[in-house]
Simulated assay, not measured.
Amino acid sequence: MRGVRGSARLAVVLLALAGAAWAARAVWEIRLAVTGEPASGPPDQGGGQHRPLTSLEDSFHLVNTAGGIVALLCAIVFLLWLDNVRDNARTLSGQQPRHSGFWLYAGWLIPVLNLWIPRGIVADVHRDSAPGERLPRSLNVWWVLWLTGLISGVGLLYGDEVDELIARAYTDLWMLLASDAAVIGAAVAGIFVVRAVTAVQQRYIDGDRRDGDSPGQANA
């Protein structure tokens, strides 16, 4: 079995940073709303015309870009962790996963299927690692909040253009903040999911070591 503590810790750190990045973006959206839309109108003037950005709008672009980079790193690290615990679950159960390795990545990207396959993969990992134990409550909380952020158009996978977000901050701040809150909540709940799944597997890894075996030897 693979060790999972290192990848889990890194996933937790990146999830926390992703939540912080979205919180920073929410702060900039509030600043935009408080400042108010310039008399010249939204950045996208229509017909392919864009007016020069204000300094605050320009800084929002920077905050959004930084958040996007953190979100990308978070996604990569989370998938690496999920790949690790998925392999361990296969060793513990002695069965092939219900979803092939292809779905570990494509399941997040294919419309409609991405509404349930990623959650199913995480749930299967927990069931195979701890048969008979209830799924952690954080799993459903995480998934509901993730889907809310996803469908609202400001999630980590599907998002408006930055100038569209600026326009929404001027005219529809509360809906935008509600979507941001869902993404932040999903990041926090995701931390609990990572810790819960890691904990059930770590019990077996630590147990193997106390018995004097290499991790997974007793399950081979």
Rank of each mutant, 00 (worst) to 15 (best):
V70Y: 02
T91Q: 12
Q95S: 13
P97R: 02
I151H: 08
D128L: 04
S138V: 07
P111K: 05
H126F: 15
L104I: 12
I76P: 01
G132C: 12
L62N: 10
L113M: 15
L145M: 12
W81K: 01
R98V: 14
D124A: 11
A130D: 01
S138F: 06
I151G: 11
I121V: 14
V112Q: 06
L92S: 04
P118W: 01
L104E: 04
W143N: 02
L113T: 02
W146T: 06
N88A: 10
A66P: 03
G153E: 05
W116E: 09
R127Q: 12
A75Q: 06
S93A: 14
W116L: 09
D87T: 10
A66K: 09
R86K: 14
L139I: 13
W103F: 04
H126R: 11
A89E: 04
W146S: 01
H126W: 12
Q95W: 08
N64P: 03
I151R: 11
V112F: 10
D128M: 07
A123D: 10
A66M: 10
R119L: 06
Y105S: 13
A123M: 07
H126M: 09
I76Q: 01
T65E: 15
R134Q: 13
L109N: 06
P118I: 05
L109R: 04
A71C: 09
V77M: 01
Y105T: 12
F102A: 15
I76H: 00
G155N: 03
V122A: 13
Y105H: 15
W103L: 02
V122P: 00
A66R: 11
R90W: 07
S152E: 13
V154M: 03
R134T: 11
L82N: 04
L145F: 06
Q95R: 14
V77Q: 00
L139V: 15
I121G: 06
G94W: 07
I110L: 01
S129L: 01
S93T: 14
V144W: 13
G155F: 03
V141Q: 05
G132K: 12
P131Y: 11
S152W: 13
Q95G: 08
V122F: 10
E133D: 12
L147K: 02
L115R: 04
R137S: 14
L113I: 09
I151K: 10
L73E: 00
L109P: 05
G68S: 15
F60C: 05
L104M: 13
L79I: 13
N140K: 07
V70I: 14
R90P: 00
L139G: 06
L139K: 00
F102R: 14
G155I: 07
L135A: 03
V70M: 06
L79C: 08
R86T: 13
V154R: 00
V144I: 12
W116Q: 08
N140H: 15
I76M: 00
L104G: 09
S138M: 08
L82A: 06
G149C: 05
G120I: 06
W143L: 03
G120N: 09
W103I: 03
N114Y: 02
L72F: 11
